[in-house]
Amino acid sequence: MSSLPEIANPQRKPYASDLSDAEWEVLKPLLPAPKGFGHPVEVDFREILNAIFYVQRTGCQWEMLPHDLPPYTTVYGYFQKWQRKGIWQQIHDQVRQKLRRELGRDQHSTVAIADSQSVKTTGKKGEVYGFDGGKKVKGRKRHIVVDSQGLLIGVVVTEANAPERLGAIIVLDEAKEKLSRLEVIWVDQGYSGKNFANAVQQVCGEQVRVEVIERTSQTFEHLPKRWIVERTFGWLNRFRRLSKDYEVYSEVSEAMIYGSLLRLMVRRLAI
């Protein structure tokens, strides 16, 4: 059984989601620096992150945070501010590059894998809401692109009835600065067709080819190359906050995904 991490606040017992000393040293230099003017920051950012990771891991509501963590209004305030400024994605991408270097990989992958996942919402959530007729799911769809290690390159959350091809193109377009060395993108049969392949080349360059990994039977099949992105969806399932889409805004859902996978990468780097 793994021991619980040491924590910055000795007045409380640690939670399994807390950052260890080594994990905190990975994240500490990546956090936004103080402005240098105005009222000095008095919060403990390590405890703020511990509280955010607690919500992501357990799936609890913000106002249900344990009282030995910082006030939920402060915690959610920082989560929301960092989401609006794109800081969750920025930190995630920096840690991803560092982890790829640790794995002996170039920071820009030559391989990408695209897929989507339809998830239920707790009722109708804002304007981004729909029905996926194929999966029989009312809610939203997570479109992701990962590298050959299953690490997230980009994500966009749409209504559940949004086309897979369109979602993948949006993700690739938003992440094209991280795809300068891309040579091939692996997809399932839902992304087949010349129109999708042409759109990929328009976004990522004519050198990129689309390789469709097809099924050979109607029963469960372990598809080579395709299991990588399925494993990434499995990683998301470790976080109860992502078991459904609980967020009102799709941008907050995307920040939750970046934050959850950031937590996993930090743990790998600190081993």
Rank of each mutant, 00 (worst) to 15 (best):
F45P: 05
F45C: 13
F45H: 13
F45Y: 15
R46W: 02
R46A: 02
R46N: 01
R46G: 07
R46M: 08
E47Q: 15
E47P: 04
E47A: 13
E47Y: 02
E47F: 03
I48A: 03
I48V: 15
I48D: 07
L49C: 12
L49F: 15
L49M: 14
N50Q: 10
N50A: 10
A51F: 03
A51Q: 03
F53R: 09
F53L: 15
F53S: 03
Y54H: 15
Y54A: 03
Y54G: 05
Y54Q: 01
V55F: 00
V55N: 01
V55I: 14
Q56Y: 15
Q56P: 02
R57L: 11
R57H: 15
R57S: 13
R57W: 11
R57K: 14
T58V: 13
T58N: 04
T58S: 12
G59I: 00
G59M: 07
G59H: 03
C60V: 13
C60Q: 02
C60I: 12
C60H: 00
W62M: 01
W62N: 02
W62C: 05
W62V: 01
E63D: 15
E63G: 04
E63F: 14
M64E: 13
M64N: 15
L65Q: 02
L65C: 05
P66F: 02
P66Q: 00
P66G: 01
P66Y: 04
H67I: 09
H67T: 14
D68V: 02
D68Q: 05
L69C: 00
L69D: 07
P70M: 10
P70L: 09
P70N: 10
P70I: 09
P71Y: 10
P71K: 10
P71R: 12
Y72N: 02
Y72R: 03
Y72W: 15
Y72M: 02
T73D: 15
T73P: 04
T74W: 09
T74S: 14
T74H: 10
T74C: 10
T74G: 09
